[in-house]
């Protein structure tokens, strides 16, 4: 079991990443807070020894994604979450359209697009984190980018 100091340090370093992934999947505050706390409880109780901060971050991303998927699959989570809640997120007007477009993507595209474009992970790294084939990740990235371009009316710059 990890100490309070370790937990505090991990939260300082990775809380934003965990929160963004929660938003990416859950799109509402209540579930986001639940999963946020669940992830850091798992971190505190986990006996995993991390080789580096990168290893620790990848572990937290993987655990967060799995926790979000578990919640979405949960029998008790019957209610659908309106996309409008995303509008409550603290995003500037200029970028809210992009955020909405990303959040509107199917789940498999969403995580790949986020990890690549925001967290700067390469396709093999994303494949490792998500437990997918690298070629599958490349395919998801290409299709996700195309969908975003379509959604944003060819506004994407093709990076």
């Amino acid at each position: 079991m990890r100490s309070e100091a370790e937990l505090t340090r991990a939260m300082e370093m990775h809380a934003d990443t965990v929160k963004r992934i929660c938003v990416l999947y859950l799109k509402n505050h209540a579930d986001t807070e639940d999963i946020f706390q669940t992830v850091f409880l798992k971190y505190t109780l986990s006996p995993t020894a991390f080789e580096s901060p990168e290893h620790e971050k990848a572990w937290l991303i993987r655990v967060t994604i799995n926790a979000c998927k578990d919640l979405l699959r949960s029998f008790f989570r019957r209610r659908t979450v309106p996309l409008q809640e995303a509008a409550e997120l603290p995003v500037e007007e200029a970028h809210s359209e992009v955020l909405e477009a990303v959040l509107a993507l199917p789940e498999s595209y969403r995580s790949v697009i986020y990890l690549h474009y925001y967290e700067q992970y390469t396709a093999p790294q994303i494949a490792d984190i998500l437990g997918k084939n690298t070629n599958t990740v490349y395919t998801l990235l290409t299709r996700g980018r195309d969908r975003l371009r379509d959604a944003l009316g060819g506004d994407g710059d093709g990076t």
Binding site: A15, D16, F36, L41, P90, V91, V102, Y117
Partner: peptide
């Protein structure tokens, strides 16, 4: 697109209150 996506996600941060609640509840 990379820049726009980064800019869209950057403002999403874990609030200090959320961190404090989490720390308390987790401990």
């Amino acid at each position: 697109m990379e820049h726009k996506i980064a800019e869209a996600f950057r403002p999403i941060r874990a609030e200090e209150a959320l961190k404090a609640r989490t720390l308390e509840n987790v401990l």
